[in-house]
Write a protein that binds this DNA or RNA. Structure first.
Lengths: 211, 211
DNA sequence: GCCCGTATCAACCGATCGGTTGATACGGGT
DNA sequence: ACCCGTATCAACCGATCGGTTGATACGGGC
């Protein structure tokens, strides 16, 4: 006998993409789309009600809760919660790391071949980790030559920096002295491999370290 | 009698999205997906060969030719060329304006309801302009209070700025004097409504003025 | 022909930035 | 107990940035 269908919940903020995925997956054996969510809150509510086996989650969810947060909330509920399979456009180190840290069972890219999606969903339902080849490559590369990650405080500094604030304004915004801002900035420059604040903003946007 | 099916070519760099769209559109009456392209070059080649009525074009096409360029090349071939219907994630002023300027017959968002997509495709095939409501709103808002557009030279300056270069380096890169760079930067700040270079980079990335 | 926008350059000045050195303090890990 | 990473602050200095004023030149549009 074949195992029962995988009950799947879609979460993506683009209705056209959701509809496309539903149409695509409905043609696959052993996969049943039980619902669609357009944002993180909706995904949590529908997951609680529909008890899907797997949530197919985009990381970019528009204005509200982001996909990483939604993933954490979905998986933090213990063993009863659904598996989360991340399906997104970006293969950035930061995205992958954060998604895995948030409890994602798998991670694959929208650029992947569709049949990879089918198998990844079945793997995820079985509790097996499902990382597509490019994603796994990136993870290993990162392990081999680990990039110095920004500390949380440095992240905050970077956020203010991207708003165009000067050092004094950043200092006021974060309730620290201007001197501290400068030391943080120095470390940020070193870690990002840049020499100016404009360069730091550019690299940060590039690596998707900022909203 | 009903008119023959609209012959449609998909162009999107994400295979999963393409497959989803194909699955979705195959369920629609009067629409026939005749091919898929994953980048701009492929789209041009397949359009020449398959002679589709409409090309459904994403603006973000990864590394190579961008969607605006592909649209221009597709529509510049005179009346024989296909209609181009842009389907993308972003409703940024710059994207909409450039796509329309490049000859797009329609522009709609992936966040739109799927049935809007069906009607837009049929409209585009008939040569009618197809702008979804949010996009049309933005266009009108822009006409009512036109934002000062950056000149081409200012764009170049901005590009170098985003690389983190100093004024002197920008001057050398563009073969102009440092003084000229500063005057350009002053106008850029005014037009973007910022006061610092970091702010300019942030706003530029926000409005998608940069790659 | 004239006006206006754009691009180019110069010289100036104060404010800010970037880098350095050195210091204190707190927490986690061995 | 010790070390290491992180966060915090101070003082200093040269280089750069941001703003201003003023100028020339070229092109398109009325």
């Amino acid at each position: 006998m074949s195992s029962p269908s995988v009950r799947l919940l879609l979460c993506d903020d683009h209705a056209v993409v959701r509809a496309g995925l539903r149409a695509l997956l409905s043609s696959a054996d052993g996969i049943e789309v039980v619902g669609e969510a357009g944002d993180g809150e909706e995904a949590l509510a529908m997951a609680a009600r529909l008890k899907p086996d797997v949530v197919l989650m985009d990381l970019q969810l528009g204005d509200g809760m982001d996909g990483v947060t939604a993933t954490r909330r979905l998986t933090s509920g213990g063993a009863a919660g659904p598996r989360v399979l991340v399906l997104t456009m970006f293969d950035t180190d930061a995205d992958i790391t954060r998604a895995v840290a948030a409890g994602a069972t798998g991670y694959l890219l929208k650029a992947e071949r569709p049949d990879e999606l089918f198998t990844a969903i079945r793997h995820a339902a079985a509790g097996r980790t499902a990382l597509s080849a490019p994603v796994a490559d990136r993870l290993l590369a990162q392990l081999r030559s680990p990039r110095p990650a920004l500390s949380e405080r440095e992240h905050e500094i970077l956020g203010q920096l991207a708003r165009g604030l000067g050092n004094r304004e950043i200092a006021r915004a974060l309730f620290i002295s201007e001197a501290t801002v400068k030391t943080h900035l120095g470390r940020i420059y070193t870690k990002l491999g840049v020499e100016t604040r404009a360069g730091a903003v550019a690299v940060a946007k590039e690596r998707r370290l900022l909203a």
